[in-house]
Design a protein around this nucleic acid. Structure first.
Length: 290
DNA sequence: CATACGTCCTGCCAGC
DNA sequence: TGCTGGCAGGACGTAT
């Protein structure tokens, strides 16, 4: 569930509370969320000090004092909860705690995940570099220019919504913000990426960045499960214009928002503001090879 | 190579 | 009230 803005919100909050702490004890309650063998994961983590926290795509990355990195991918329902002083009372423990890091000074960082699609992975610097290299550019960085987006879209035959979800192409965009950015750019989600006109690419470049930035300002979107490390919901849900609004009226034109499914995921759009692809001539070039 | 689809897992909610 | 089917913010592996 959590996409770039939610992961960024979590990383920022943990920067406040977790940097400088030493991991004193590691409890792996649900080994299936740990990518490493659980014993190894525990042994390597205990005694490490947290030097820094970063976000990459939808992952939160702990930088540890031996040069290793702990990458946390939240899946659909993962949460990183921070208890700055001591430990929560039993009744206040999150119900689906999967991994618990007890810290010194006394405190806790709890990874909680109902569905357990998330993963915690401890990597050395080279391992993390390889993972990061497999991901596309960060859409909020200055290096993510209009030309960079154009070069990603042009050769693709995938529906634009599917392409936006492909982390190897662009990092951090998930289903909520893909749909929101496409509405802002007035592009139907099923349009084939390579068929977008220059003006449409320009609009999309702008709306991808603006919707992500505004969502970070609002501390993320909570549809149901998302919480920040303090347990608080994000504030962006009321600003969603199409996601999860099928049957409601478009805020721009009043047309009823529709929902359709492709690539196994829901797409939401305003059929009036985001018209389907024009009937287009199918151009097929004869291939030289068989 | 690129794209499409099923799968992992639990809980919630609408509809009957 | 209780049950059932559908659906969920992700991403990996396999098929085509």
């Amino acid at each position: 569930m959590p996409e770039l803005p939610e992961a960024e919100t979590i990383a920022r909050a943990l920067r406040e509370g977790a940097i400088g702490r030493t991991i004193a004890r590691v409890r792996v309650i649900r080994p299936d969320v740990v990518a490493n063998p659980a014993r190894l994961f525990q042994r390597r983590l205990v005694g490490r000090r947290i030097l820094d926290l970063q976000r990459r795509a939808k992952s939160i990355v702990f930088h540890l004092d031996d040069g290793s990195l702990l990458a946390v991918s939240l899946g659909m329902t993962g949460r990183l909860l921070m208890y700055r002083v001591g430990r929560p009372r039993r009744a206040d423990m999150p119900p689906h705690a999967a991994v618990i890091l007890e810290t010194d000074p006394p405190g806790m960082i709890v990874y909680d995940d109902v569905r357990r699609f998330g993963r915690l992975e401890l990597l050395d610097a080279a391992g993390w570099a390889a993972r990061s290299a497999a991901l596309g550019p960060e859409p909020l960085e200055d290096s993510f220019t209009l030309d960079v987006l154009g070069a990603i879209l042009a050769p693709s035959r995938a529906p634009i919504r599917s392409l936006l979800l492909d982390q190897r192409k662009i990092a951090g965009v998930g289903n909520i913000y893909a749909n929101e950015a496409l509405f802002g750019a007035r592009i139907h989600p099923a349009r084939l990426a390579g068929t977008l006109q220059p003006a449409e690419v320009r609009r999309l470049h702008k709306t991808i960045r603006s919707v992500l930035a505004r969502a970070i300002e609002a501390r993320g979107t909570t549809i149901r499960d998302y919480r920040d490390p303090n347990g608080d919901s994000g504030g962006f849900a009321p600003r969603l214009v199409v996601y999860d609004r099928a049957g409601s009226r478009c805020r721009r034109c009043g047309t009823v928002i529709e929902r359709t499914v492709f690539g196994g995921r829901s797409a939401f759009f305003c059929p009036s503001c985001q018209p389907a692809a024009r009937v287009r001539v199918i151009r097929r070039r004869r291939n030289a090879r068989t």
